[in-house]
């Protein structure tokens, strides 16, 4: 290390460690607190943050199991959390698969083909993506209400409408896949074409197998993006049995019916897998963030 260190170096390092641990404690407090709350009996009790008595009642409710409380009343799960989780996963899986399919083919055209207005189309896609979907909610609602009048299975209150609404958000993914395709030498496909392969065959049988890693990344990104999406789902889905997790979770914390403990268990149950997926995918996500950001 070339920097000349002074005598106060040791103190500074100790100070930095202490400060960082305090900060980490403050930062992680909400996450640790919610785990402890989910194991604490009752929905209202405050007091010790480390539960003196472990109760699995909230977890039972989150998993959809009824139980009998101390007074002999049957306590039923307040909300169908597992159903919501299933709805979320179903919508996210289908949307992510379609998003990957759509953006891969488009990225192939952008990376490998020449056509008119290529730069213009690419830039307008990026510009369009900057407009938050939350601002166009009125129009999205009106569009699906109109569609639903003729095609009921694609109207308001259907999962199909939510999936279809998410298919617009492909610009970032096209950009990511395009970048990856450009790192693969064109010669390989050209050899295939010399051997008589069509464009589609060169794409499907030569390029795609080599691009599987980036397709996985885009799938995970799209999947997480859909799971945590709230605004569109909240206007298209209203009935309890139809909700996704992101829309349904807020019903736990209504002032009139405050189910803090039940919420904590449901939050840990549903949040933990997503967090783990995110941490595993972190490396790609971060590189995507910085790369996309600097370029765009």
């Amino acid at each position: 290390m070339a920097i000349v260190t002074g005598q106060s170096q040791r103190w500074r390092i100790t100070g930095a460690h202490v400060a960082l641990w305090i900060l980490i404690a403050v930062t992680l407090f909400p996450l640790l607190a919610v785990i402890s709350i989910s194991l604490r009996p009752g929905n209202f009790s405050t007091g010790s943050l480390i539960p003196s008595e472990i109760s699995l009642d909230h977890w039972k409710l989150a998993l959809g199991i009824s139980f009998t409380d101390a007074e002999g009343n049957l306590v039923k799960p307040p909300f169908p959390v597992l159903l919501w989780l299933w709805n979320s996963i179903k919508i996210a899986t289908i949307s992510a698969l379609l998003i990957v399919a759509i953006s891969t083919t488009a990225a192939y055209a952008f990376a490998r083909m020449k056509f008119a207005h290529k730069g213009l189309i690419l830039n307008s896609m990026l510009l369009l993506q900057m407009f938050p979907v939350a601002v166009a909610l009125v129009a999205i609602f009106a569009i699906f209400e109109g569609i639903g009048a003729t095609i009921p299975w694609l109207g308001i209150e259907t999962h199909a409408s939510v999936v279809v609404a998410y298919l617009g958000g492909v610009a970032m993914h096209i950009w990511t896949i395009k970048g990856y395709f450009e790192t693969i030498p064109t010669e390989i496909e050209e050899c295939a074409k010399v051997d008589g392969a069509t464009h589609w065959q060169a794409f499907r049988l030569v390029l795609l197998p080599m691009a599987v890693p980036i397709l996985m990344v885009v799938f995970v990104l799209a999947f997480i993006g859909v799971i945590i999406e709230y605004p569109v789902a909240s206007i298209l889905l209203r009935e309890e049995a139809n909700l996704t997790l992101a829309v349904g979770s807020k019903y736990y914390l209504y002032e009139q019916r405050y189910l803090w403990g039940d919420f904590a268990a449901a939050a840990v149950l549903s949040g933990l897998p997503i967090t783990l997926v995110f941490l595993v995918a972190q490396k790609w996500i971060v590189s995507g963030l910085t790369a996309g950001g600097v370029k765009g």
Binding site: I102, T105, V135, V138, Y166
Partner: peptide, 20 residues
Amino acid sequence: YLFPGVTGMLVFVAFPLLYT
């Protein structure tokens, strides 16, 4: 190759903006 992606963006991103 472009059609599905561009259509998706036109219908669900660009059109809602104009419609709004």
